[in-house]
Design a binder for these strands. Structure first.
Lengths: 214, 214
DNA sequence: TTGATTTTCACCTTTTCATGCTATTTTTAA
DNA sequence: TTAAAAATAGCATGAAAAGGTGAAAATCAA
């Protein structure tokens, strides 16, 4: 067996904090290194306590768990953050994930499962309820516009030029970049506009980005 | 109790298919409506069998599970697809998710957990191992550039105008949209350019999109 | 109330862009 | 090998955008 997993708990509800404290202290393999009702002294506490896993309540007075997480991860990137929450609130799930949380547990999760989740996240997993996982997947599916829409049939050179447009270059710069005359650039762009059915640089760039043409 | 959950299985390994068949038939609450070694006749099978949940092997001769999934989802969007795989292959996880899979199980998962996962996905969850969940989360974190970079201190009106630029509008259109003169639009855009440190519509739009300013 | 910022507008100049038409050379596909 | 497509280039014109300068209301903060 390795060393014990060092746990730090931030939870403002006293009963819950004490219950968790009891649970964590009673569990072999885990070592509770601190339990606090808010994150106001997080910057002081974390470097000294060196937690492996932080259980972080989302709703806390002062700085919320979501706000505290990026601060913590900046101080100690190797620490894994498990968010604790009462509700499966869409926005906050994603905020927490973006801010560096590695798992997402509901407070009504059973003690056994909480312990399992701690080991899990410490071993490099991301425990979360399957309904939260579904939301994440759904979001994921939205993001990628599966099909690369219809093919606009741009020639290789036209794609190059379009890439330059997407870099924000002027005709002049594009000409220099590709060692061709500015009139040739014009000519290519004309064709690109026809094929993409647009009539300005901005529209072309937006279409290129949105439909991932380049 | 509701009606039984209708299960359809695609798995080319004969032993595994027969083992799963036995397991699924022996489980109350589930009804195995078909078990096939490949998806070549999927288009024929699915409409008649009306599965609630499809267990789909990733590696199969002919059409792979990843290729078959979008076809199946197009035929019957309400069917939930659970991918079965031996390895946690990064690329294929994301392909499967993008193609519409709702869960991701390793073949070495225990029978009990497989049954649980079936109920889970049927109830709207997305069962997956926590290590797969971690990969998904990680990918997610990459996508969103956490910080909204520095603040460019755009005034509310300037943000409005920038939004219009991002819509691809011309000065004239923006003027009409906001009931102001074209000279005022010019003025705002001048200030936006100063603050964003750019000097063309395209650059401004790109910066706005990249840094999620609007 | 006063100073600062924001929002509004005007005029003028220069540059860049959009588009029409034409045309030669090179590459590719039939 | 011949026709088609792609890449190159030029010229011309009007429209749109960018940049300079200035300034009057309106709003906000001190």
């Amino acid at each position: 067996m390795e060393n014990k997993i060092r746990i730090l708990l931030y939870e403002d509800n006293r009963d819950l904090r004490e219950g968790m404290t009891f649970l964590l202290q009673a569990t072999p393999g885990l070592q509770l290194v601190g339990a606090f009702p808010d994150t106001s002294n997080l910057e002081m506490q974390v470097p000294g306590l060196k937690p492996d896993v932080v259980l972080m309540d989302i709703d806390m007075p002062g700085r919320t768990g979501i706000e505290a997480t990026p601060v913590l991860k900046a101080l100690r990137p190797e620490t894994q953050v498990l968010m604790l929450t009462v509700f499966e609130d869409e926005d906050r799930i994603f905020q927490a994930i973006r801010n560096g949380a590695s798992g997402y547990l509901l407070k009504r999760t059973s003690p056994t499962e909480i312990i399992a989740a701690i080991h899990d996240v410490h071993a490099g997993g991301s425990p979360m309820t399957s309904s939260i996982a579904r939301r994440v997947l759904f979001f994921f599916q939205q993001e990628q516009p599966v099909a690369k829409s219809r093919d606009y049939d741009l020639s290789p050179r036209e794609q190059d030029i379009l890439k330059s447009l997407v870099k924000g270059f002027s005709y002049k710069l594009i000409a220099d970049e590709h060692f061709i005359s500015i009139d040739t650039v014009r000519s290519h762009i004309r064709h690109i506009y026809e094929k993409l059915q647009v009539n300005s640089k901005t529209e072309a760039v937006l279409k290129a980005l949105k439909e991932k043409i380049v």
